[in-house]
Simulated assay, not measured.
Amino acid sequence: MSQQAQDIDGETENLTLVQAVRDGLQSEMRDDEDVLVMGEDVGKNGGVFRATDGLYEEFGEDRVIDTPLAEAGIVGTAIGMAAYGLKPVPEIQFLGFIYPAFDQIVSHAARLRTRSRGRFTAQMVIRAPYGGGIRAPEHHSESTEAMFAHQPGLKVQIPSTPYDAKGMLIAAIRDPDPVVFLEPKLIYRAFREEVPDDSYEVPLGEAAVRREGSDISVFTWGAMTRPTMEAAEELAEENGIDAEVVDLRSMSPLDKDTIVESFKKTGRAAVVHEAPKSGGLGGEIASIIQEEALMYQEAPVERITGFDTPFPLYALEDYYLPEPARIKKGIRDAVSF
């Protein structure tokens, strides 16, 4: 059992990440009748990844709503619901399908509170599986979290464990502002973890130090957390490099305090993300370090990322994604500078 699960009284269940997402949805729908889910095939079919499996049978068609294949309509309808007191959780089947709804998200959901001077808010969670590694067709593997993190008024959250997935999703549903909740589908069913049956929250905006270390701080999130942890453990055995691994979890707001505190301890940093390097959040993290902890810096910040290309199909997918060997090389370069 994980330490997190031990810290909460009550029964636990061994869940995958996608099962934990479903558990979080079910928990909040049982506790709050204003919570509803909507999207393409989320009802009778249970969702393309079965994240909403069984919810239609329990809560009915008024709270588990199958929508047309129209992302702008899904999100626009959810904004209207939220403005008048409901708490919708619209699902976009893949992050690569979200762009028709981008205007609704950034022009309306993110601005509703300021536009109405606090009269209305968009209490809603936009869920979307994201990222590569599952041999999917075009538009199914994007990692464009930086586009949403750039927009004031949105919170952007990415869990990397089943425990966090449930707790962060519950916290997101309860948050008064709109949240983009991205689920790394590569690890939907990659492993299991003890997750409390009871409702609980993992606070939004707080990073988690997954591995303590003294030589370098490695910042990552989502599906890249596992290969980063693997690389850190192998480096400790092979080279004696003691890497601290920080799972940021929240892209907006970033946990600047944890980033700076970790960097001040180690003086070196690397960022691992599967999105393209240019314009990615690795650059923002490097800027935070420059602004807040320049005098502690011993080496340039190393970025270990995807490439500045469209996400490739099958044959090159494994080469595109950062994997332990490439992560280890980047960490060694930063440490040996």
Rank of each mutant, 00 (worst) to 15 (best):
Val48Ser: 13
Ala231Gln: 10
Gly283Trp: 09
Pro152Gln: 00
Leu169Glu: 03
Glu237Gln: 13
Gly205Gln: 07
Phe49Arg: 11
Asp247His: 03
Tyr56Leu: 07
Val202Thr: 14
Val260Arg: 03
Met229Phe: 02
Leu254Asp: 05
Lys166Tyr: 07
Lys328Ile: 06
Thr220Ser: 10
Pro152Ala: 08
Glu28Lys: 05
Ile92Arg: 03
Leu36Gln: 00
Pro184Trp: 06
Asp175Glu: 14
Arg135Gln: 15
Gln104Arg: 03
Ile98Phe: 06
Ile134Ser: 08
Pro184Ala: 11
Gly153Arg: 05
Pro100Met: 02
Gly54Cys: 02
Glu138Tyr: 11
Leu154Arg: 00
Val301Arg: 03
Met38Lys: 10
Asp197Trp: 04
Val202Trp: 14
Ala208Tyr: 06
Leu254Trp: 06
Gly85Arg: 04
Lys265Gly: 08
Gly46Pro: 05
Arg211Asp: 02
Met147Thr: 05
Tyr163Asn: 00
Ala20Thr: 12
Leu254Glu: 05
Arg226Leu: 11
Leu86Tyr: 06
Asn45Lys: 13
Ala236Phe: 04
Glu284Tyr: 10
Phe181Val: 11
Lys265Phe: 00
Lys87Glu: 01
Arg192Phe: 01
Gly267His: 07
Ser214Asp: 13
Glu291Tyr: 14
Met229Cys: 15
Ser107Gly: 13
Lys256Ser: 04
Ala334Lys: 11
Glu40Tyr: 00
Glu201Thr: 10
Gly282Val: 03
Phe102Pro: 09
Leu281Glu: 14
Val195Gly: 08
Ser2Val: 07
Arg30Tyr: 10
Val271Trp: 12
Thr161Lys: 09
Val272Met: 01
Ala208Pro: 05
Asp308Phe: 02
Ala5Lys: 08
Ala51Lys: 00
Thr77Trp: 03
Val89Thr: 07
Gln26Arg: 14
Phe59His: 02
Val35Thr: 08
Tyr84Ser: 04
Pro129Val: 02
Glu28Pro: 08
Asp257Met: 05
Glu302Asn: 07
Gly279Asp: 09
Tyr84Glu: 01
Pro310Asp: 10
Phe97Met: 08
Gln157Thr: 15
Arg303Cys: 08
Gly76Phe: 06
Val218Cys: 06
Ser278Cys: 11
Ala5Trp: 00
Leu15Thr: 09
Asp177Met: 04
Gln93Phe: 00
Glu201Asn: 12
Val301Gln: 09
Pro300Asn: 13
Phe181Arg: 09
Ala325Asn: 12
Val125Gly: 02
Gln4Ser: 15
Phe148Ile: 10
Leu182Val: 09
Leu25His: 02
Gln151Leu: 07
Gly54Arg: 13
Gln123Ser: 01
Val195Ile: 09
Tyr130Phe: 15
Glu201Met: 10
Gly222Ser: 12
His140Met: 02
Ala275Glu: 11
Ile158Arg: 02
Glu142Tyr: 01
Ile74Gln: 08
Arg326Ser: 14
Met147Pro: 10
Gly267Ser: 09
Ser160Tyr: 14
Gln297Leu: 12
Phe191Asp: 13
Trp221Phe: 14
His140Cys: 03
Pro159Cys: 07
His108Ile: 06
Tyr296Val: 00
Tyr320Ala: 13
Glu13Arg: 14
Pro178Asn: 06
Glu233Thr: 06
Glu40Lys: 09
Asp198Cys: 13
Met251Glu: 11
Arg210Gln: 11
Asp175Thr: 01
Leu112Tyr: 05
Ala223Thr: 06
Arg113Tyr: 11
Ile241Trp: 09
Leu154Glu: 01
Gly330Arg: 03
Ser27Tyr: 01
Gly131Pro: 04
Pro176Phe: 01
Gln151Pro: 12
Asp7Ile: 08
